[in-house]
Amino acid sequence: MNAIKGILNVLNLAEKLKFEMRHSWLSNGRQESVAEHTWRVGLMAVLLEPYIEESMDMAKLLKMIMIHDLVEAEARDIPAFDTLYDADRKEQKRLAEHAAMKNIEAMLDEAPGSDLRQLWLEFEAKETFEAKVANALDKLEAQLQHNEADMETWLEVEKEMIYLLSPHTAFHPVLEELRKAIVADAEAKLHVR
């Protein structure tokens, strides 16, 4: 396959993330796109890097963040609350995302496609330090965005989900501190209502 043609195919697919909407709403009342979410997760990593003392491969972390939702260009965004208590829906989402990643991998030359897939699988497994950080930031950004949105956009289940972030951040004090600040903002918003 022509390498440039494959890259263009992935970029054309990725453009869909600019109009694939998440359940989250912005402070101006507009719905958030997947691309906007991904961008801010990356910004969070850049801003927090100086405070994470452990050895961390920042290039790998940013790559993981950039591609973690790429599958949603094909498999669509499924809100976390849709799979929270529905194992069948969660499995359907997993299968659709794996199929999408196989298609994305096939668009690229063998080595770059395989590398992309391995990064995505590493994020999904949440076992390496970079994958844990990427996952934590992904979850925290979603809550941060909810905090910035009008309360009328919140579903009842999202008020419960505020308290489900700790398993994603407990492994690191800086991420735990950020989680506590984001939760405090969410609680303040709930009590103001």
Rank of each mutant, 00 (worst) to 15 (best):
I104Y: 12
K5I: 12
R179C: 01
V10A: 08
F129E: 01
A186G: 12
L175R: 06
M66H: 03
A181M: 12
E110C: 08
S27A: 14
I65P: 00
E124G: 00
V10H: 04
T153P: 00
V192W: 06
I104D: 12
L175Q: 04
Y163V: 07
D109A: 11
R179E: 13
N28H: 13
H37T: 07
E54P: 05
G113N: 07
I78T: 15
Q145I: 04
V46E: 15
W154Q: 03
K159N: 12
A142E: 04
K90D: 09
A99L: 10
I7R: 04
A96S: 12
I4C: 05
E36D: 15
E177L: 02
A125F: 01
A3D: 08
L178I: 10
F171T: 01
I65G: 01
K139S: 00
P112K: 10
R94H: 12
A186K: 09
L119W: 14
W154H: 05
E176H: 03
M58H: 11
K5G: 05
V157F: 05
L8T: 13
E72P: 00
L47P: 01
D82S: 11
N147S: 06
Q92A: 14
A131C: 03
T128S: 15
R40Y: 15
K60V: 02
G29E: 13
A35V: 04
A136D: 04
V41K: 01
N2Y: 03
K93F: 01
V34Y: 00
T38L: 02
W154K: 05
P50G: 01
Q118E: 14
F171M: 02
I65T: 02
A125D: 06
P112S: 10
A99D: 15
E36V: 04
T83M: 14
V46Y: 09
V192I: 06
I4M: 11
E20T: 15
L62A: 02
D109K: 05
A75T: 10
T83W: 07
H168N: 11
E152S: 08
H168Y: 15
